[in-house]
Nucleic acid binder design. Structure first.
Length: 588
RNA sequence: GGUUCCAUAGCUCAACUGGAUAGAGCAACUGCCUUCUAAGCAGUAGGUUCCAGGUUCGAGUCCUGGUGGGAUCACCA
């Protein structure tokens, strides 16, 4: 349809102005809602070609296209904007097509194999709100890419080694008295996180004492026994010390058990797990290889660096003087391992924008090593979640815990449902499922509707809304559609000719935009575009619902057509909701 | 200080990548349940798009320079 319109305009230029335009030059936009019409062609850029005033040019082109295409009911020109309205017949036949579709939305023409790495937690503490945004973004982006037709591998890279892990291990040895998740009746990741915080507390006390005894801050840091112990533990770990390995495995397994529960509740999953402990050695060897090839250089103390000053960056450390690896080292190794496993076209990292620099370096390093996958490395950078007091910091207890948050959302959903008197007639199990669907739906929509690149300010004092532009509103609309479809006695098939109201045309025209939205969302990896579209879908439907009677419409044909509208709305909401990882309730 | 991202209604966010009179939600106010789910709908009010220039038919969007904020520039991960 858009294609035909473009061709007609192309012909109009040929005929009227003897000028050939490529189809790419002809841009069709959606008409601004405050004007009449559905599609708009802006003539301003072509005034040099038409050599006429904007209005006159618009009229000429409009008349030409109108005569040529019988889908076009009318056109109007406002200043340099040529607006086309389509006929009722066209919209009806389009609705009929939609009703036949197995699946809503076009697929990508050239599918790619894409790995999406997300979550990537550290095993020294439980997940917090920041991870929740990461998990939801990663999962949703995977869903969108996959639905659009790409082959997607969801990967989770677990940071299971390093000094931070040793800190919680050390504190566990010192303070835990052998506490286990069972004995303490505490989720494994929370148990380990507790000792990570305990380490920080003990460390701060130690520092305060040292400073009190007359040392400067720097001296105090250097003389810290706790930090020295942690470093020693890291060295022992790298040497494979038996006792350390046992402790390490035990704590990590507790954390994994905890994560599994949180992931399951969030509704996210992974196709493959990588662990830093399995990739850092590979990274080291790649760095040494690069050194041999002369891509990197060695400083006098034996540390290995890459010089990126020609690329506008600084020199960057790749391997410490003592030969131990840094963050970059393991990421180089992981990139290689991933590619050897899957040979994907693109490798997407869902990681916060605080690491923009890191990923710039990583990509450059891989390019310098002439890895075939280097160009496919893409950092999907997103904004941090912050509290009114600033960044989330587990060590300082300034954190919104993921499990607590999900539990609160569930509780609030329960409260609201009971308040509304909608909890009657459902079993306890069904109600619990509903609260979970509503609570998590509100949370997911809240985090995903925001442009990923922007940071989110989360104020724990004001709870996440259940009214207005919220997940609940979307779910409510879905439940409303379901209810109507349940009560319908007619078949949901397209009738013959019926007259469409404005609100009905608006809704159909809105469906028309979905292909475009899906493509944009996939190309930009932006669930926010889907969320926005979902909201508009619900908004349009509710407006229609309030203006038009569906089951009691004047004629059977009207009832059928409106049921089709309802069914497609429900499918659209369900489809888009799935792309965001949101479940839809049949009733609420 | 270098690099980089951001600044839109009281608050939280949009604006189809340069298009028409900058739109939603929350909060405030006014209507609408004997009728398919009122967690809804319709409406009122709320704006010098941080400031100053520039580019052009046209700028919240692009360029330059300010102001304010975030991130990063570690032998931390």
């Amino acid at each position: 349809m858009i294609q035909t319109l473009k061709q007609s305009i192309q012909e109009a230029f040929k005929d009227l102005f003897d000028h050939s335009l490529s189809l790419d030059e002809v841009k069709i936009e959606n008409t601004n809602p405050s004007f009449e019409g559905s599609f708009t062609f802006v003539v301003f850029p072509f005034l040099r070609v038409t050599k006429k005033k904007p209005e006159e040019s618009g009229e000429l082109i409009g008349a030409f296209v109108h005569a040529k295409m019988n889908e076009i009911a009318s056109f109007n020109v406002v200043k340099g904007f040529l607006n086309f309205s389509l006929t009722q017949e066209y919209w009806l036949s389009y609705l009929g097509e939609l009703n036949q579709l197995e699946r809503l939305g076009n697929k990508v023409r050239e599918p790619k194999k894409i790995m999406v790495e997300y979550s990537s937690p550290n095993t020294n503490k439980p997940l917090h709100l920041g991870h929740v945004r990461n998990n939801l973004l990663g999962y949703s982006i995977s869903q969108i890419l996959s639905y659009y037709g790409h082959e997607v591998i969801k990967a989770n890279l677990i940071n299971d080694r390093g000094i931070h892990i040793c800190k919680s291990m050390l504190a566990y040895q010192m303070f835990a008295n052998g506490e286990t998740p069972e004995s303490g009746n505490i989720k494994g990741d929370h148990l380990v996180g507790k000792y990570y915080v305990a380490f920080d507390k003990a460390y701060k006390e130690e520092q305060a004492q040292l400073i009190e005894s007359g040392l400067t801050e720097d001296e105090a840091k250097n003389q810290s026994k706790l930090m020295a112990d942690a470093r020693e533990m890291l060295t022992k770990w790298e040497q494979g010390d038996k006792g350390i390995m046992v402790l390490w495995n035990q704590l990590n397994n507790w954390v994994y058990d905890g994560f599994d529960i949180s992931y399951a509740r969030m509704g996210v999953d992974f196709d493959v797990y990588y662990k830093e402990s399995q990739t850092y050695l590979l990274g080291k060897s790649m760095v040494l290889e690069g050194l041999e090839q002369g891509v990197f250089f060695k400083k006098d103390d034996g540390s290995i660096w890459v010089d990126l000053t020609d690329d506008g960056l600084d020199q960057k450390l790749l391997l410490r003087a003592d030969g131990t690896s840094v963050y970059m080292t393991q990421d180089i190794g992981t990139a290689d391992l991933k590619y050897n496993d899957y040979h994907m076209d693109q490798s997407v990292y869902i990681v916060g924008n605080e690491q923009d620099y890191h990923f710039k370096v990583l990509k450059l390093v891989l390019q310098k090593l002439q890895k075939p996958y280097a160009d496919g490395v893409h950092h999907m950078s997103y904004g941090m979640v912050e509290l009114p007091t600033g960044k989330l910091k587990t060590r300082e207890g300034k954190v919104v815990d993921a499990d607590d948050l999900m539990e609160e959302m569930h509780a609030t959903a329960k409260e609201r449902t009971i308040e509304q008197g909608k909890a009657d007639g459902l079993s306890t199990d069904a109600l619990n499922e509903l609260y979970e669907t509503l609570g998590l739906g509100a949370l997911k929509y809240f985090l995903l509707k925001v442009d990923p690149s922007k940071r989110i300010l989360f104020n724990p004092a004001d709870s996440i809304d259940f009214q207005g532009n919220t997940g609940t509103f979307i779910q409510y609309t879905y439940a409303r559609c379901s209810s109507i479809l349940r009560n319908a006695e007619h078949e949901v098939t397209m009738p013959g000719s019926v007259k469409l109201e404005t609100s009905e045309i608006d809704l159909i025209a809105h469906f028309f935009k979905f292909d475009n939205v899906l493509e944009e969302a996939a190309n930009h990896m932006s669930p926010a575009l889907i969320a926005q579209y979902l909201y508009d879908t619900a908004k349009n439907y509710n407006s229609f619902y309030n203006q038009c009677s569906i089951l009691k419409a004047e004629t059977d044909s009207l009832v059928k057509m409106r049921l089709v509208l309802t069914r497609i709305t429900a499918r659209m909401i369900e489809t888009c909701g799935r792309l965001l990882g949101m479940k839809m309730p049949d009733r609420m």
